[in-house]
Simulated assay, not measured.
Amino acid sequence: MSSRDSLLKTTKELLWDRGYDALSPRTIQAESGTGQGSFYHHFRGKEDLARHAVNEVSKEMREALQSLFATDKKPMDRIRDYLLNSRAGLRGCRLGKLAQEEAVVGNSLIHPIAEYFSYLEEILVRTLEQAKQEGELEQDIAVEALVAMIASVVQGGYVLSRARQNPQQMDMAVNGAWDLLERMKRRPSDDV
């Protein structure tokens, strides 16, 4: 692995574990096994390295979403798969955690984070609109509001899991959301 790749891989992990504020070039160098020369050869500083790392994380997470939703399953089954997908509740969302830091909101790191959440919203809207077209959901359901609820449940599940140090909080949140969505599904008897 090149020194650049090692720096990026280490930074992605440290951002997830510690956040941006607690990140230091010295820690990144020590954890990655690279020297100061390599660090500054590849990156202008902490923010530049973090921006590259967050861009990679955002891309990886968008690709994972695309894979999850690119199936022949019915739309609501894809929504269920997204909600019930295994998550590291105690570690938190790789990007959602960073959006809580003031230093991140005020610099270039917020852009790839916002890009991921926009992509998540787009894919959920598209899937739920398809569910309406295929008769899985009632026509009068406000898709954008439903999407905001789904994204908020997942992010809130991370927060509750971390706050209570209980990964089952995530499970309860997403299972509760899926239960509500199941109740919103259109039943064949609804046509009568």
Rank of each mutant, 00 (worst) to 15 (best):
A22D: 15
V159H: 09
G19E: 08
T127G: 11
E122H: 14
W178D: 03
R18V: 10
M172K: 07
M170I: 06
A70G: 05
A70W: 00
W178V: 03
N85G: 12
R164K: 11
E138W: 13
E121I: 00
V57N: 00
I123L: 09
Q155H: 13
G96C: 09
A148Q: 15
S24C: 05
E182D: 06
L180T: 14
G106P: 02
R62Y: 04
E134T: 12
R62F: 05
A151H: 12
P25R: 05
Q36N: 13
N85H: 15
S24T: 15
L120G: 01
L181S: 03
W16F: 05
E60I: 02
L65K: 09
V57C: 04
S3C: 03
P25E: 03
T127D: 11
E129G: 03
Y40E: 06
T127F: 10
M184I: 03
Y119I: 07
C93T: 04
H41C: 08
G106E: 12
G45L: 02
Q130I: 08
L83W: 07
P188S: 14
A30N: 10
G89Y: 06
R91V: 10
M1N: 11
S86P: 12
E63T: 12
A114D: 11
N107H: 11
Q130F: 04
A148I: 10
M149Q: 13
G89F: 07
R126P: 01
L14E: 00
M184E: 01
E115G: 13
P25D: 01
E63N: 13
S189D: 13
S2W: 05
W178H: 08
V192Q: 11
R126G: 10
L8V: 11
I28Y: 02
K46G: 01
D5H: 09
D171R: 02
E134H: 11
A103Q: 13
R51N: 10
Q36R: 14
K132L: 09
K9Y: 06
N55M: 14
K97D: 04
T10D: 06
Y82S: 01
Y20D: 01
R44P: 00
G19V: 08
D21V: 14
K73N: 10
Y116M: 08
A50G: 02
D140H: 15
T11Y: 05
N55S: 14
N55D: 15
I79L: 12
W178G: 03
D48R: 02
V153N: 07
R183P: 01
L83A: 04
G35H: 04
N55L: 13
R4D: 13
K9D: 09
R162P: 02
R44F: 03
A151M: 11
